[in-house]
Design a binder for these strands. Structure first.
Lengths: 337, 337
DNA sequence: AGTTCTGCTGCAAACCTTTGCAGTTCTCCT
DNA sequence: AGGAGAACTGCAAAGGTTTGCAGCAGAACT
């Protein structure tokens, strides 16, 4: 029913190859012919069949994008930026959701592999070895993870965690909890490592600061909510959470236990999702450049046309945003230096 | 480089058509042959080329899903449910985001049309006439909108709005604002209509209740935040918001103006996004069965294999969830009847 | 023993487009 | 005037799969 290239060729009195070129290699065809062809194509409602094109060129002009959980507000801005960037280059984005499940994630990569030109693996929960294996089946760019030998885009959460710990220490906090995220998350390991290292560092030059890691936990509001009691019992005066969602859940959980934030416990999140500006207290958090990450990842995937295996690794800067969920620790006020 | 059907045929000593049938018509091939074929296919890492398959069958086994704004937490659960249902039937879902822009929306439908078997148009901002036109190019199921002649899935927001207004009236509120959503939203019109009608109805049997509509506004937290002052000035004692995000933004905006919810103003949202349980006060809201809607929409699209133009219209029930953002109005307590 | 049927497999066309090559016409040199 | 080159267009193969049809062997009839 839909018009094919043949219909257009017939209707405009030229060969199909000319029609083809009118679309995909305009400089090779006489402007007059071209406009005539385009006109009839328009009239017939012709749109090139992407399947046929893909069959012969080997490129689908689609890219896959797999996230751990699309319901986590961290991802949508990244997805939007990636879609925008991709559309801009005449690509489309397939978004899929692994439900935080490594097995589903692997299955998705396999299923998508044959119908996309490459896949953006965002916040993968898979083991590095598996990811390396998959990268032999399809071009991969990993986001929020560094995998040796693969192109990747990460945010400098280590720096962010350090800033957060320093901020809390400066406010006088000495006993800090790290509310960990999901198993298999590179970001989680990175934050934990950096937070503990930062505490050790600070301990060297003043009063000892201790960071204790909790988890793994579900990286959701409920995950934070559920951890509230544990946090309360442990007696931390400040908590750094794996992400904003958990931080917000934690604050609510503490509120129901009668614990006030930031008066009794300070809370810092990571991501700076749109919501964190809106809650009360406004959430102090490590801002992640998610949109930039989405754009960069698409760029990496498409830029190096066919020279697969580009091993660029991009690290984007993060920044601590101080709002109202952090306040002076029990030792008194911030020390002046 | 990747193994083709021909490689498998050669390696297992049968004709390619047998390999094809081993995958897509198992009952037509000898079980022994079949297992041998599958085995060698596995060994060679063969995966059918979907482009080639699509070319001949005319079905891509992909479906498109266009939402107004993927960053609105209302959509992800719907998307997840749709993806799940689709994957279950060996389909994949293309998600795209129109940025609340009708022009982008139309362009997306056109672009997607040729590479999917059908499109789920969720919360479209397009005019009905345009949607009807598009439905001639590609199978369409509309969600959160009723378009004559097209299959659709809607939530009974009219009922929800009525319940909300009745709830507020019962609490003693007489001057209620409706914080409207975006231009072009069917749901917005529906809620407004129902809310105003409900007020008129109530007025008939007791003290007059007035519902005043505001808007259009951006259906986001910021949209709600921005409207806070207007709401405050207007002196409503209760507000029904187009969605939870706006309701939450409004509550924060009122808080910064020193207006307490629910003591001074009651607020009701629509959607019951996950977050609404977590904020303080917990948000009273009209719960929408988003996951069910996602599943139903995919069902409608795929079920009636090729008998296009099925005109089923599904309406899913909504339910008022009462939490802490609504309280007694200025007239005193709830009246007993 | 001859016939019909069943169950399986092979053959080849078809799906729609891209692209290297060859052919044609025309312009511009020398 | 003759030849070279440019500019454009047509030809046909190729890409990987599905599927109607035909062929074949063997089983089950008569």
């Amino acid at each position: 029913m839909p018009a094919t290239i043949r219909d257009v060729a017939r209707a405009s009195g030229v060969h199909i190859s000319t029609v083809s070129r009118a679309f995909s290699a305009p400089q090779l065809v006489n402007p007059e012919t071209r406009s005539k062809v385009l006109e009839t194509a328009e009239k017939l409602g012709y749109r090139p069949n992407r399947a046929a094109r893909a069959l012969i060129t080997g490129r689908t002009h689609n890219i896959g994008l797999i996230v751990a959980d699309i319901a986590n507000p961290f991802f949508p801005p990244l997805i939007k930026a990636a879609e925008r960037e991709a559309r801009h280059r005449d690509y489309h984005v397939f978004v899929a959701d692994s439900n935080e499940d490594p097995a589903v994630e692997e299955e998705l990569v396999r299923a998508l592999a044959k119908q996309v030109d490459g896949i953006l693996l965002v916040s993968p929960r898979l083991a590095n070895s598996v990811i390396e294996g998959l990268s032999r089946e399809v071009a991969l760019v990993v986001v929020n993870r560094q995998v040796p030998g693969l192109p990747s885009v990460v945010m400098d959460v280590g720096h962010g965690a350090r800033s957060a710990i320093e901020h809390l220490a400066e406010l006088g906090h000495r006993s800090i909890g790290y509310l960990g995220g999901p198993r298999g998350s590179w970001t989680n390991r990175e934050i934990r490592r950096a937070a503990i290292a930062a505490a050790r560092n600070l301990g060297g030059l003043g009063e000892p600061v201790e960071v204790t890691a909790l988890g793994p936990n579900a990286p959701t509001g409920d995950g934070g909510l559920a951890a509230a009691e544990q946090v309360h019992r442990a007696g931390y005066t400040a908590v750094l959470a794996y992400n904003d969602l958990m931080a917000i859940g934690l604050i609510e959980g503490l509120a129901t236990l009668g614990v006030r934030v930031p008066q009794e416990v300070s809370v810092v999140g990571v991501d700076d999702i749109a919501l964190s500006r809106l809650t009360r207290p406004g959430l102090t958090t490590v801002a992640n450049p998610t949109a930039a990450a989405g754009r960069a990842a698409v760029d990496m995937l498409l830029q190096h046309g066919d020279d697969r295996r580009t091993t660029g690794q991009i690290t984007l800067a993060t920044e601590l945003v101080i709002r109202d969920s952090t306040g002076p620790g029990p030792q008194g006020n911030a020390d002046p230096g």
